[in-house]
Simulated assay, not measured.
Amino acid sequence: MGTSIAVKMSKRLPVTLNDILKAQSRIKNHTHTTPVFTNCTFDQKYCRNFYFKGENLQKTGSFKARGALNAVTVLQEGGNPVPGVVTHSSGNHGQALAWAAKMRGLKCAVICPNNSPAVKLEAIQGYGAEIVMCEPTPTSRQQTCDQVSKDKGYHFIPPYDHNDVIAGQGTIALEFLEQVPELDAILVPTSGGGMVAGIAIAAKSIKPDIKVFIVEPQGKDVERCLTAGERLWPNPPRFLNTIADGIRLQQLGHVTWPIILELVEKQVFSQTNEEIMQGMKFCFERMKLVIEAASGAGIAAAMSDRMRNMDDSIQNVGVILCGGNTDIDHLPWYSS
């Protein structure tokens, strides 16, 4: 049954299960198989079995290493000379691409908003990449990136709207379902949608009845768009006012959108800053794990009334702890 679903999807979607399996083969010797954590206190309080996938312990501190390394590797497989790579990023994809470029012997430039967390900028430079600052808007990020790409001849590898990036992120689901085959649902913190698109393709191919849910900061309005079946976000795109800097982009990507529309549940978990902080605090205090606010959003979704009111058939829930690159000198509950 799973195979027939995978073949059916491969005719419609730009990324297939086979692409994700190839990505896993490319990156597995250089990335971590991240652990899965459980917490009995959490399960008892929220009345389901929760499994937390520790991508905060991935290379470079987030899941982004998977997609970046796969994309850079595929780029070099083409046989043409690659002078370097460039991207725009608030931090995690920038770190991941800088690391992947260093692994593959390439130069790298990362365009960062001038309000990016210092801890992430320092890490990007630590991997040997050049940082170019821009204004904190999606438009400025893309324009600056385009100019650097033109000036240096670097190949642009976007944070999410790229088939090889999506395939790399889909390897999370391959691992997760091998570690916890009984998963009924997965909660995925989402910015442009590369991770949730890749996870949905892999998970639904392997286990067609599994449900994949988006977790967003309040104001992203993905549920309204999914329900309407069309992109209703304002143009140009903007950033949300959220402590979860890794998922503050309001719009889903143009490549990721049709995948998400087809495979991801219409119900979306929308979390406030206070709820995100509560998720982070639980993880710090009870699970002894350092996570960033985007990961806290996933935990907040697991704690939410929407999850509490889910159908009883959903008993085993995966939560992606998508990153751990938080500035411990500026934790959100101390910033007010």
Rank of each mutant, 00 (worst) to 15 (best):
Val15Met: 01
Leu17Thr: 09
Leu21Thr: 10
Ser25Ile: 15
Asn29Pro: 10
Phe37Pro: 07
Phe37Gly: 14
Cys40Pro: 14
Thr41Pro: 12
Phe50Pro: 01
Lys53Cys: 08
Gly54Phe: 07
Asn56Arg: 10
Leu57Val: 09
Gln58Phe: 05
Lys59Ser: 04
Ser62Cys: 09
Lys64Leu: 10
Ala65Glu: 11
Ala65Lys: 01
Asn70Thr: 10
Val72Thr: 10
Leu75Glu: 10
Gln76Met: 13
Gly78Leu: 09
Gly78Asp: 14
Asn80Met: 12
Pro81Phe: 09
Val82Lys: 00
Pro83His: 03
Thr87Asp: 08
His88Thr: 11
Ala98Cys: 09
Trp99Phe: 04
Arg104Pro: 02
Leu106Asp: 03
Lys107Glu: 13
Lys107Trp: 01
Asn114Cys: 15
Ser116Ala: 15
Ala118Thr: 05
Lys120Asp: 01
Glu122Arg: 10
Gln125Trp: 08
Gly126Lys: 02
Gly128Lys: 04
Ala129Arg: 00
Glu135Leu: 14
Thr137Gly: 01
Thr137Tyr: 06
Arg141Ala: 03
Val148Pro: 08
Val148Arg: 03
Lys150Ala: 14
Asp151Cys: 07
Lys152Leu: 05
Lys152Met: 12
Phe156Val: 14
Ile157Trp: 09
Pro158Gly: 00
Asn163Ile: 15
Asp164Lys: 13
Val165Tyr: 10
Gln169Ala: 07
Glu178Gly: 06
Leu183Ile: 09
Ala185Pro: 00
Thr190Ser: 11
Ser191Ile: 00
Ile199Asn: 11
Ala203Leu: 13
Val212Gly: 06
Val212Glu: 01
Phe213Val: 07
Ile214Ala: 14
Asp221His: 15
Cys225Leu: 12
Trp233Lys: 07
Trp233Thr: 04
Trp233Val: 09
Pro234Lys: 04
Pro237Glu: 10
Asn241Gln: 15
Ile247Val: 03
Gln250Asn: 07
Gly253Arg: 06
Thr256Leu: 11
Leu261Pro: 02
Leu261Met: 14
Glu262Lys: 11
Glu265Ile: 04
Phe269Leu: 07
Met277Asn: 12
Gln278Tyr: 04
Gln278Val: 03
Met280Asp: 00
Phe282Asn: 02
Glu285Asn: 12
Glu285Val: 05
Glu285Lys: 00
Arg286Gln: 14
Ile291Ser: 09
Ala294Gln: 01
Ala300Phe: 07
Ala302Gly: 09
Met303Ile: 05
Asn309Ile: 07
Asp311Arg: 15
Ile314Asp: 02
Leu321Phe: 14
Gly324Asp: 11
Ile328Glu: 11
Asp329Cys: 12
Ser336Asn: 14
